[in-house]
Design a protein around this nucleic acid. Structure first.
Ligand SMILES: [Zn+2]
Length: 680
DNA sequence: GCAAGGTC
């Protein structure tokens, strides 16, 4: 084997971000591409413009920032192969070794990683370490279709230095913040707890933790308030019909009773408005990952992380397109007819697809959404691969993706809603119903189909009509705390405030679990004492890191570096100053911070203890949080008193209501008589 | 060991 591995004596090396992309590039540039393997890693030998070339692949980041220094502050770091920094990632070693071999005879190299900031960094680091001194180009494509690849390779650019510098800088900033603050709080908690703990903090995970903590504290300190809702039934013919109250609730028993009395005396309600509306509901947008995670969460009860893992499997089986995308747009060049034809080989979809082709007369226009991704289109089924050997969960997710894809081409659904508003003693009630007039896309993707209601009697459909009252009363309901966070809710929050990426959000939520900051019981997230302590520490000593704004600043830096208005070195120097300053302040308040810990976590020998939980007491032998609960129980009574409750009745209800916050319940159960005295 | 970002 003269050239070894069947490689040409010299060639251009084209580097893709992942094997799937390498394959597409190779086949677009040369339909006769020949596949080879090195260390199990695929590559393709092609002829391109009459010359030999090899298309090889990374597997995402193959290098990582690393330091061998211990302790903090630490600002010395360098790029090393990822398998050095993270011994768990042995596959990166195989990819790197394959690239090392393929690099030897390359005279020229093309960074053909995804055309986004990370792709620029991934390719740059490989070229820097394995291909020094070669001629370098950057391929810039916005999708991996044949025509777009050909276009990009006809107009290769020079290496995008600005983009690379911006990307490297983002990595450094995250590293400096994350590693330093993680080490600082790990040391502190280890000292406080008397055992070694490894904790973490970062630009994305810490605001997410704070979000969960804030919600949980709100729930634990929640005192429900009484609200009174009128209940009215009217008589139409010989039928009784309940009205839905559509106005502000009453805040006292007496005002509600007075209102009921008024209605009874009046004896009728009057129809004030009849609203008949026909609404077109447009078909859904093609899936991006956040939408897929949301729908799979609500329809299939999958966690965002599960959905992502299953989608990655489907992608690797070639059943669906690349899933880690934010785009809601199908590629304009996608042969949808071909995909449908391939999909209808599956008996499960045959009749649906036949009806779709009929109703669209074969004109397949997707309802593309506004969300955009620089490197990948929306998720769609390829029609390739076999869905036969899939697990139940894989199959369920695949089915969701296929149906969503079909639905986006379908007709809008049409709903007809009738709402009758009636008024009684100056307050508004209503009765409404809904019918699906045209099924449209619900046929393909039925999960959003609304429940249809019963018809409304003719007598009510006349403005000014007087309808006799049959029954009137009121019921008491209590205000509700905000719902407990779920993984899906946290993910959607991260997306809405713009932190993390499609590839990282679900994983970062799992990090909060691994650190023991949060736990989940039947899907509902709860925060541990450790999570509360860490969130509070970060808020006090590293407030920038728990705020979403840090990401906005990073984005500004990245933009400025790309525009050459700033250089990475300046940004890093500035960040170093800020982080060093925070770390110094933390160091000088270390003893004070150490003393804060027992306010969150019961630890031995912490002096005066809370009588309810063993945390450090601040006053009246209560910890900070139980003292706050005590204050709120006392404060809330005023509203209950005005609603018509005695203080005994109040405490009794608080003991029994399920929505009462945990801290509130603990205080009332243990200190009922004390609170009763305070209320006098 | 700690981040966040890729992908297997
Ligand atoms: Zn306490």
């Amino acid at each position: 084997m003269r050239y070894g591995y069947g490689l040409p004596p010299s060639y251009t090396l084209i580097i893709a971000e992942k094997p799937r992309a390498a394959e597409k590039i190779a086949k677009a540039l040369d339909p006769h591409a020949v596949k080879g393997r090195l260390r199990g890693v695929p590559y393709w030998v092609i002829r391109w413009n009459g010359r030999p070339a090899v298309v090889a692949s990374a597997a995402g980041h193959l290098y990582s920032l690393y330091t061998d220094r211990r302790g903090w502050p630490v600002f010395e770091y360098r790029w090393v192969p990822r398998y050095v920094a993270e011994p768990g990632s042995s596959h990166t070693k195989r990819f790197l070794e394959a690239l090392k071999v393929l690099a030897q005879r390359a005279h020229t190299t093309i960074n053909a990683c995804d055309y986004d900031i990370e792709g620029s960094v991934i390719g740059y680091l490989i070229i820097k370490f394995l291909l020094p001194g070669r001629r370098v180009f950057r391929a810039k494509f916005s999708s991996l279709t044949r025509s777009e690849i050909l276009r990009a390779f006809r107009s290769l650019g020079s290496l995008d230095h600005e983009m690379v510098e911006a990307g490297l800088c983002r990595h450094e900033l995250d590293w400096m913040w994350g590693i330093n603050v993680s080490r600082a709080i790990s040391d502190l908690m280890s000292d406080a707890l008397g055992k070694k703990v490894i904790l973490s903090a970062g630009r994305v995970q810490s605001p997410t933790l704070l979000r969960a903590v804030t919600r949980i504290i709100e729930r634990r300190l929640f005192v429900p308030l009484p609200r009174f809702y009128p209940r009215v039934q009217v008589r139409v013919g010989n039928k009784l019909l309940g009205l839905e109250y559509d106005d502000e609730p009453f805040t006292s028993r007496s005002s509600a009773a007075e209102f009921v009395k008024c209605i009874r005396e009046e004896g009728y309600v009057r129809v004030t408005e009849v609203r008949i509306e026909e609404k077109r509901v447009l078909p859904p947008h093609p899936f991006n990952l956040p939408d897929l995670q949301k729908e799979a969460g609500q329809i299939l009860r999958f966690s965002p992380y599960t959905t992502q893992k299953l989608a990655e499997d489907l992608y690797l089986e070639a059943l669906i397109s690349y899933p880690r995308t934010n785009s809601q747009k199908l590629p304009p060049t996608l042969d949808n007819r071909g995909v449908l034809k391939a999909l209808s080989r599956n008996p499960r979809y045959r009749s649906l697809i036949a009806s779709l082709l009929l109703e669209t007369r074969g004109i397949l226009r997707p309802n593309n959404g506004p969300s955009y991704d620089p490197a990948h289109p929306a998720i769609y089924p390829t029609g390739e691969g076999s869905a036969k050997r899939l697990s139940k969960k894989h199959l369920a997710l695949y089915d969701l993706i296929v149906r969503r894809y079909l639905a986006t081409f379908a007709q809008p659904a049409v709903l007809r809603s009738v709402t009758v508003y009636v008024s009684a003693c100056g307050r508004r009630f209503r009765i409404s119903t809904l019918r699906v007039v045209r099924e449209g896309w619900y046929r393909y993707y039925p999960y959003h189909r609304p429940r249809e209601g019963e018809g409304i009697p003719q007598e009510l459909l006349k403005r000014g009509a007087k309808i006799p009252v049959a029954k009137a009363s009121y019921s008491i309901r209590y205000t509700k705390p905000p719902p407990p966070p779920t993984r899906l809710e946290l993910l959607r929050w991260m997306e809405s405030v713009g932190i993390g990426t499609e590839s990282t959000r679900a994983e970062i939520i799992e990090v909060l679990f691994r650190r023991g900051y949060v736990v989940a019981r039947s899907g509902r997230i709860d925060v541990s004492d450790l999570g509360l302590a860490v969130a509070s520490l970060l808020q006090e000593f590293f407030p920038q890191l728990v705020e979403v704004e840090l990401t906005r600043r990073f984005e500004e830096y990245v933009e400025a570096i790309r525009a050459r208005k700033l250089r990475c070195r300046e940004v890093v120097e500035e960040a170093k100053k800020v982080i060093s300053g925070s770390l110094e302040r933390f160091r000088s308040s270390y003893r004070k911070a150490l003393e804060e810990v027992p306010s969150f976590i019961p630890v031995a020998g912490a002096g005066d203890r809370c009588r309810l939980c063993g945390r450090r007491a601040v006053s009246r032998s209560l910890c900070r949080i139980h003292l706050e609960a005590y204050r709120r129980v006392v404060e809330a009574y005023e509203e209950w008193r005005r609603a018509g409750f005695s203080k005994e009745e109040y405490l009794d209800r608080i003991r029994r209501l399920k929505s009462v916050g945990q801290y509130i319940r603990e205080v009332v159960e243990a200190l009922g008589s004390e609170i009763l005295r305070e209320l006098s």
